[in-house]
């Protein structure tokens, strides 16, 4: 009679970074006010680029959370879908080069642009995820949020790395 030793693995279907980003995105909905005409229908998060973990987390979130009375809806594609009326446009790292076009097309239309590549808060994004000291933080460019057509809260500035 002898002991048997088992071996186990890291949690295979869970990405802590993506979970952190999903929580940030959900929190952002509390700090901005969208135009009146966007307060009905689904609350759309348009994800541009590819990252299976992010999509999984956002969809999990959408299944159980709402923004006020609005249901969350995640729309993912590799390029911008101009037929959508998104509340948040999340441009993933691999689609960062689309920021300029997205910012131009959605100027004043009430879409919060979120990115995740260094320097993009100064290139059109209102929110840009950055890793500082091994933790997820975000840069906030209030001017870009205002020109996107959103009403902003000063409270968010205290929680962010302000870039304007």
């Amino acid at each position: 009679m002898a002991f048997s030793s088992l071996s186990f693995r890291q949690q295979p279907t869970f990405d802590p970074v993506s979970k952190g980003k999903a929580i940030f995105i959900y929190n952002f909905t509390r700090y901005f006010e969208w135009p009146e005409k966007m307060k009905s229908g689904n609350f759309i998060i348009h994800v541009i680029g590819s990252n299976a973990n992010i999509n999984q987390e956002l969809n999990k979130m959408a299944a159980i959370k709402q923004v006020g009375n609005q249901k969350l809806e995640i729309k993912s594609s590799n390029t911008i879908d101009i037929n959508l009326k998104p509340h948040i446009i999340y441009i993933l790292n691999d689609a960062s080069d689309q920021l300029k076009e997205v910012a131009l097309k959605f100027k004043g239309k009430g879409a919060l642009i979120v990115t995740e590549k260094n320097g993009l808060a100064r290139a059109g994004a209102a929110i840009n995820f950055v890793a500082i000291d091994n933790k997820q933080k975000f840069e906030y460019n209030k001017s870009n949020a205002v020109s996107a057509g959103l009403k902003t809260s000063d409270e968010l500035k205290n929680l962010a790395i302000a870039v304007d």
Binding site: Q11, K19, I23, F24, Y26, N27
Partner: peptide, 28 residues
Amino acid sequence: ILYYNQGATLMRMMDYDVDLSQLDVIQE
């Protein structure tokens, strides 16, 4: 792996509407 999983579990157990200051503590 155990230490990693314990860290990942802290993140996994968080509700999506946890506020940002609390998120910072849990991330730490």
